[in-house]
Design a protein around this nucleic acid. Structure first.
Lengths: 206, 206
DNA sequence: GGATAGATATATCGGCCCGATACATCGGGT
DNA sequence: ACCCGATGTATCGGGCCGATATATCTATCC
């Protein structure tokens, strides 16, 4: 799952581990801040699979998609002089995504992850939903909705079954949980409606 | 963390692994259903530490902590004939909590878990909050509140900082996230108020 | 009566992820 | 001159998960 996140961020800009971690933290929201203990191994895995590769330190960070002003040329040369490829003198190792990585990204993003369509997995995929075709996006939202509805049903029956034996704290916890799930479902409904709206408008344009 | 959950459930009733899993699932809410791949090792760990022990299959479920009536002796003997200790004929292995386990439970529940007072950790502790002294309970709630406020601040500044570069999906995800966090905080405020209410009323009684 | 399926039940394996830790360098403040 | 905090890479032990293997009990169908 981390692979997907890394590839998605690297898709927009070449980065080195430390910065990648910060970018991941703000992309995935405050929750699920990735640790180095998982980031570096994941990066190593991706590199071994040929999905990412260490790129030239200088050009990468500054360039990527935004045309340069050209004033940083001096810095670039200075850095290049101290062995920019692989680990530079400072040990920095900038990674970039490869075509293989792009394909892997599409694949991971589209995967219906068989059994455990985990909460974090959904959040992650939604964050990159713009890279999905419209129908896959809708499918993602609807699968998630179904999952939450199922969870809600189960949670409610669990509360009903044990209402008397629950103390105030557990009960409050469970009730708050179901309310949160209800709100999540409404939110998904709004997203789904918006999605269908786009689709309809597009269909009408033809 | 799983240890705490196991001990908490076992505190109320002796159970074998399979049933323990079900009980855990409904105690911890629909989310975070424990897998056998973590449950059995955790149980083994606890057993090695002397916090739980395999108990007599028959008597255990009925008895645990309640003085026995003595009428179940027959059943016990019948089951004992088929080797009730350890794995019975059916392979069932019923666990009970020991005094060591009780102490471990108190300790784990009271631990301020140093760094990562994880979401799940909080939910779990709240579910067993009735076993905490009132001040520790209040501390738990307030620490959690502070944590969420901090998260909210960070999330908001992250949104503000990248508002223009965010696509609709990421933005919606983040905004929904902050709303959820806000609601979590209000919920905590209600719990805290209730907690203080109890305390005040108790103080007035003296 | 016997087959078949599904719930009950325990256990292990590989793999991912986390927290802690180690180590090194750089920039800025005192 | 010195130290501290941010930057930066990396590993290690351990916990948890999903998949899988195995076996028994129970209910249902033919």
């Amino acid at each position: 799952m981390l692979e997907l996140a890394i590839l998605g961020v690297l898709k927009e800009q070449d980065l080195h581990g430390y910065e990648l971690k910060k970018r991941l933290a703000e992309t995935l929201g405050a929750l699920s801040s990735v640790s180095f203990g998982s980031l570096y191994p994941a990066l190593a895995r991706l590199e071994a699979a040929g999905a990412v590769e260490a790129v030239d330190v200088a050009g990468a960070v500054a360039v990527s998609s935004i045309p340069m002003t050209g004033s940083i040329g001096g810095e670039v040369a200075a850095l290049r002089a101290r062995r920019t490829t692989g680990r530079g003198s400072r040990g920095k190792k900038v990674y970039g995504i490869t075509p293989v990585g792009e394909r892997l990204f599409e694949e991971l993003l589209a995967t219906e992850s068989a059994s455990g369509d985990d909460d974090r997995a959904f959040n992650l995929k939604l964050a990159f939903a713009r890279h999905l075709p419209a129908d896959a996006r809708l499918g993602l939202l609807e699968r998630r909705r179904a999952q939450l509805v199922d969870r809600l049903t189960k949670a409610r029956s669990a509360i009903r079954a044990r209402r008397e034996r629950l103390d105030a704290y557990s009960r409050s916890l469970m009730e708050h949980g179901t309310e949160t799930t209800e709100r999540d479902i409404s939110w998904l409904d709004r997203l789904i409606a918006a999605e269908r709206g786009h689709r309809t408008r597009k269909a009408e344009q033809t």
